[in-house]
Amino acid sequence: MIEAKQLSKSYGGQIALQALDMNIKEGEIFALLGQNGAGKTTTINCFLGFVEPTSGEALIHGVSVSNNPLESKQYLAYIPETVMLYPNLSGIENLAFFSSLAGQNYSEEKLKGFLSKSGLQESAQKQRVGGYSKGMRQKVGIAIALAKKAKALFLDEPTSGLDPKASNEFSEILKELSGEGTAILMATHDIFRAKEVAHRIGIMKEGQLVSELNAVDISANELEMLYLKTI
């Protein structure tokens, strides 16, 4: 579902991504670990079409992002590290707006359903986003992704800054989505959560995927040791 073939990106002489190969199947959660600047965000941006790869190809549901950016975007949803919304609109209005951008029109009931599912308390749904906390905005971001019913979900450090309870709820939603067949690529610094939620874990260094393993084969402590050794 999410596939990279020899994906490379360099800015001037600086290599950000070097011949990355990766294949994430339906229902699979792939966690990317790595230091800042290792190439995790660049990888996600290549799939989102925000960044044009220097060479190689990024495919979503078999559709090349570079050649068919409009089509590939139909299949994906994205939750940035910090979900920023329109402060003058309420949570439910923001959700309605972003869904309409993707060409979807939901009834108010449905929209409320998505927000409740992502954990936003009902009393806050009609309040303006200007007064939301980071966690609340993050939940609206999740609802936007849920509403899009995407085949591929990209997450850039989605739990950074969330309290443990919110992080935990978030993991549950990811597992649920994966159960429904969504392929998920998640860049994160949170080794513990990566081990807990992901099926496969990749460690990136200087634009390359230097090790890749199944989450069941390793404990969180071992993973941490491996990570520290690798980078």
Partner: peptide
């Protein structure tokens, strides 16, 4: 909001 806009809209 731009990244979310761009990822949502074709």
């Amino acid at each position: 909001t731009w990244s979310l806009v761009r990822s949502q809209a074709g």
